[in-house]
Design a protein around this nucleic acid. Structure first.
Length: 414
RNA sequence: CGGAGCGUAGUUCAGAUGGCUAGAACGCAGCGUUUGGGACGCUGAGGUCGUGGGUUCAAGUCCCACCGCUCCGACCA
């Protein structure tokens, strides 16, 4: 991609937001706000989202979940069936011109359950796991922190159906493992699996996946040594009085961003929709359900919160919008310009995702500042100085190296 | 939904006590000089001052209502 053609350039000056991710994503040209909690994802932001979605997709497919897509416009009756038309206060409601009422989907139990009802017959059809990656609408009383808490946002949600509690229990663990892989691949090194309340979904257990950062809004009580963590809402523990119930180490309280949440739904929704199957003994049964969400757009914000410096964003390799940021200096010199074009084309040929700052009019300082702000993991500089080699630098590190193109491509691909 | 702050050029902002023919910087366009950390000179385009009402000889400025944004709180399937 030529930077000169990129839609959504960096901005020199942007309003000061308290939220770092809001500020940096806006300034670097990843997002654009249209109202409180509602954002355009610009081409750079969309690329990051697509990478996150692909990682999720791969890991979901690996555990046998099948991707589908459900509507976001839900007829009222579906939500009346579960009594959630009145009780879910974040439900966006809308009407057709003929007076029919709809909900804008905040979650999809109300559509997945009747859908499965159309196909589920026998225990042979179970277990079943279906997911989709789409938008969600929630009428939040107070959207905040940019893309971290919106009224319209991206989410992957997975729903599973099992013959019994044990089936769910096993799959629940499988999903936990898959989630940890996903978050690791997205660049989170320390995700806390947190015991939490089931909210209006279920009276049973639920687990959140939390990333510790002051920008978060979940209060977490967790062990400094082992993996123990609880949402403070449900915790009876006090770090001053209590030690970790698992390993007896000291406890700590910190803020965290919830990037995923999983629930044991039991048979609440299968009963509501009278979703049944015939078991081995010929008896009718309600399948036990689980649901599992990941906030895809929230991940973008959460990564920026934990991975940036005073110059800009530092994207983890796997979700960076591009793999390399090529900067051409001295571009009015024809030899340098030709050399740059050659390198750019070779990178493309070798399937390196590259953003090429081809602006003749911009100064070196501007280009470096933009590269730091945008935060692509590898910066390549070609100028009069670099001759036949290319200057290679990782974002977040100071060291630069002069390397041949081949070596650079190898570095990027590994 | 309670509390606080804010809304003026594409962007970030300045415009005490009403006098504005509305400014700056950055960005943008043109010309020229520059070119390894947001460089410089000259020229130029760009605004129904969030919307509606009111007070006044006169409103960006004062009053009322509404809309919108940010932050704190409540809320957070």
């Amino acid at each position: 991609m030529l930077y000169s053609h990129l839609f959504g350039k960096t901005k020199k000056e942007v309003k000061k937001y308290d939220s770092i991710s809001h500020q940096l994503l806006t300034q670097a040209g990843f997002i654009d706000q249209i109202a409180a909690g509602i954002y355009n994802l610009l081409p750079l932001g969309k690329r990051v989202l697509a990478k996150i979605e692909n990682i999720i997709r791969e890991e979901m497919n690996k555990i046998g979940a099948q991707e589908l897509e459900m509507p976001l416009l839900h007829p009222k009756t579906f939500w009346e069936t579960t009594d959630r038309w009145q009780t879910v206060d974040v439900l966006f409601k809308t009407k057709s011109q003929y007076g029919q009422e709809y909900a804008l989907a905040p979650t999809h139990e109300e559509t997945i359950t009747p859908l499965v009802k159309k196909f589920l017959k026998s225990y042979r059809d179970l277990p079943l796991a279906l997911y989709h990656i789409t938008k969600k609408f929630r009428d939040e009383p107070r959207p905040k922190s940019g893309i971290l808490r919106g009224r319209e946002f991206g989410m992957k949600d997975l729903y599973s159906f099992h013959q019994d509690k044990n089936g769910l229990k096993n799959f629940y663990q499988t999903v936990i493992k898959a989630y940890l892989k996903i978050f690791k691949r997205c660049g989170f090194n320390n995700v806390k699996i947190t015991e939490a309340s089931g909210g209006s979904f279920t009276k049973k257990y639920s687990h959140e996946f939390n990333v510790i950062t002051p920008a978060g809004e979940v209060n977490l009580i967790y062990c400094q040594k082992c993996s123990f963590a609880q949402n403070i809402e449900i915790s009876q523990l006090d770090p001053k009085k209590n030690q970790c119930p698992k390993c007896r180490s000291n406890l700590k309280i910190d803020k965290a961003i919830e990037i995923g949440n999983i629930f044991d739904l039991g048979t609440r929704f299968s009963q509501a929709f009278n979703l049944i199957f015939i078991d081995k003994n010929g008896e009718k049964k309600f399948p036990v359900m689980g649901c599992y969400g990941i906030g895809t757009t929230r991940i973008i914000g959460a990564i920026v919160e934990i991975s940036h410096d005073d110059r800009g964003i530092i994207w983890p390799k796997n979700i960076a919008p591009y793999q390399a940021h090529l900067i051409g200096l001295d571009l009015k010199d024809k030899d340098v310009k030709n050399n740059c074009d050659k390198i750019y084309n070779q990178l493309l040929k070798d399937e390196v995702e590259v953003l090429f700052d081809d602006r003749e009019e911009a100064t070196a300082g501007e280009k470096f500042a933009d590269a730091d702000l945008i935060g692509i993991p590898v910066r390549l500089v070609v100028s009069k100085k670099t001759g036949k080699k290319i200057e290679y630098k990782k974002r977040g590190e100071k060291e630069t190296k002069l390397l041949a193109l081949k070596d650079i491509i190898n570095q990027i691909k590994n």
